[in-house]
Write a protein that binds this DNA or RNA. Structure first.
Length: 503
RNA sequence: GGUCCUGUGGCCGAGUGGCUAGGCAGAGCUCUGCAAAAGCUUCUACAUCGGUUCGAAUCCGGUCAGGACCUCCA
């Protein structure tokens, strides 16, 4: 089974065929660094990290471009034609680029915490003003944009006459032309559906660039088109982003690029669904966001505790990327426990010695039940590729791994014979856990490893072991209780071993 | 108002015509100096009404409920 992806353009799953054999070009709309990233932002970056990792696993050479939006194109914020970044900068009395740097750093920190692979190119909007201006000029030359009071608008009506404006979002052009809303700069436009390619900057606007039409700043959609074209060409494989960007952002990108480059920019449009909270989309406008720093610190009224980046990553992977995913502290707690159980199974597996009897397995050595186990295991392992090939179904992949955990524990506890699995299957299971959990799903050990603490704990555990052997329970209980107060949990295993974890 | 999507057991969530999803919680058991942890086993589903079919959570239609986009948004 080959890779199938759901293409928002056709609204169905399509077989993935790269434009250039062996290579994939992917563009994903990155963050707007005018503020701190929140939980909702984590989803697209984790989703497309999975896409990236899986394509790499399939052997493609991937060029993954994810931009940083650091230029103003946020017109009509609060009915004022003002750029969000410069507005906030004035409030905080710092340079806009200082603010941009601060939030970019925070974003990069979060990406690292989530174990997200770096994109190959991370272009910034401010670094590509020239490309954007060039593109706008081409669109004007082609006759699909017009200048009005120092701003440039895309002529949607003209475009729609010969092209399908709405092919991606399903929007009907007639409806768009009848919009009744009153927006700033509306009178500059020929039609209400027209969107800005370039906006003239009012005098107080800090972020501004010279252009053939006067000083101003680029419109909302042009940056992605310009940067995608520059680094991936006029036609590339995948364009990703959140579903809320379908219209008008991606629809407009298609229109601009089609006029400028005579190509529909991307072959496959992939969109992740939203994270909701109490059934409502998490977003700035709803004032219900939980910032990532708050997630990781637990410092938010809706959080009962702090959650690690890996818990959040795992939580997101448990849901298919095109479904909405409802956030609650309870759901995160469940994810945390699930990940722990899965990871412990993985660690136990890596320590198991493997089948002792190498073969040749004479037919009757294994009882019938073990043949079932062998078959079950092989099936669970073989299905992994199919699940991912089916539009990246990480939830099913995880479910299969969970189903293998009891087998591992069974072998560890001796319920299941070490020889129940063939050497081949056992080894495959070992390598599959690592390959899938770590490399493809990008999960990491949820526990921190601190070598100093490790050696201290080793000592304490040694002392406690001795006291238990001597039936000096006062000492052993003291160690256990004091550690518990300090936030460390000791677990007595039945073989006399003791393990520990930080609560 | 227009376009589109969703409704699964206490919670989260896979699943598109017949086959146990999975996780968390609950219950029982095992282990144990005590405890915790862990492991094993296990109960509770498919919004509602009608239709198609030998058979539907899964397809079709109605109803109800919720949501997204149409404005900055991941």
């Amino acid at each position: 089974m080959s890779l199938k992806v759901y293409n928002s353009l056709s609204r169905k799953k399509e077989e993935f065929k790269p434009i250039t054999k062996g290579h994939v070009g992917m563009y994903v709309c990155g963050p707007t660094v005018s503020g701190e990233s929140h939980l909702g932002h984590a989803r697209p970056y984790i989703t497309f990290d999975i896409v990236n990792r899986y394509l790499l696993y399939l052997g493609y050479k991937v060029r993954y471009v994810r931009n940083i939006t650091d230029a103003g194109h946020f017109e009509e914020e609060g009915r004022e034609a003002e750029d969000k970044i410069s507005k906030k900068a004035q409030l905080e009395k710092i340079e806009p680029m200082e603010l941009v740097q601060k939030y970019t750093n925070l974003f990069h920190w979060a990406m690292k915490e989530f174990n997200i692979l770096d994109p190959n190119i991370e272009p910034t909007a401010t670094g590509h003003i020239v490309e954007q201006i060039t593109m706008i000029e081409k669109i004007i030359e082609a006759g699909y944009a017009y200048v009005s009071n120092g701003s440039v608008y895309f002529d949607v009506k003209k475009y729609a006459a010969t092209h399908d404006y709405g092919k991606l979002s399903g929007r009907v052009i007639e409806d768009l032309l009848e919009t009744t809303r009153h927006l700033d700069g509306q009178d500059e436009k020929r039609d209400k559906a027209d969107f800005a390619l370039w906006k003239a900057a009012p005098p107080q606007h800090i972020m501004r660039w010279k252009s053939p039409w006067g000083e101003g700043f680029p419109g909302w959609h042009i940056e992605c088109s310009a940067m995608a074209t520059k680094y991936l060409g006029v036609e590339f494989d995948i364009h990703g982003g959140g579903m809320d960007l379908l219209f008008p952002h991606h629809e407009s990108e298609i229109a601009q690029s089609t006029i400028c480059n005579h190509h529909t920019p991307a072959k496959y449009w992939l969109h992740n669904n939203m994270i909701t909270i109490g059934g409502k989309k998490m977003g700035k406008s709803y004032n219900n966001v939980i910032k990532l720093t708050e997630m990781f610190s637990g410092n938010h009224p809706l959080l009962t505790q702090a959650f690690t980046p890996m818990t959040v990553r795992f939580f997101i992977l448990q849901t298919h990327y095109r479904s909405t995913q409802d956030f609650s502290s309870e759901a995160l707690v469940a994810a945390e426990k699930g990940l722990k159980r899965l990871w412990e199974g993985y660690e136990v597996l890596q320590k198991l010695p493997g089948t002792s009897i190498r073969l040749p397995v004479t037919g009757n050595r294994q009882p019938a039940a073990d043949k079932d186990l062998e078959a079950q295991c092989s099936k669970l392992l073989a299905e992994l590729d199919d699940f991912m090939n089916d539009d990246f179904n990480t939830a099913k992949v995880l479910a299969n791994f969970f189903e293998m955990v009891p087998f591992i524990n069974g072998i560890k506890d001796g319920h299941i014979s070490m020889d129940a699995l063939s050497s081949n299957t056992f080894q495959l299971m070992k390598t599959s856990f690592k390959l899938w959990l770590e490399d493809i799903l990008g999960l990491k050990n949820p526990k921190e490893n601190n070598p100093v603490l490790n050696s201290v704990m080793e000592l304490l555990i040694e002392i406690r072991k001795e006291s238990r052997e001597n039936k000096d329970f006062a000492t052993s209980d003291k160690i256990r209780n004091q550690l518990n107060k300090a936030g460390i949990l000791l677990k007595d295993k039945k073989n006399g071993n003791i393990s520990w974890e930080i609560l």
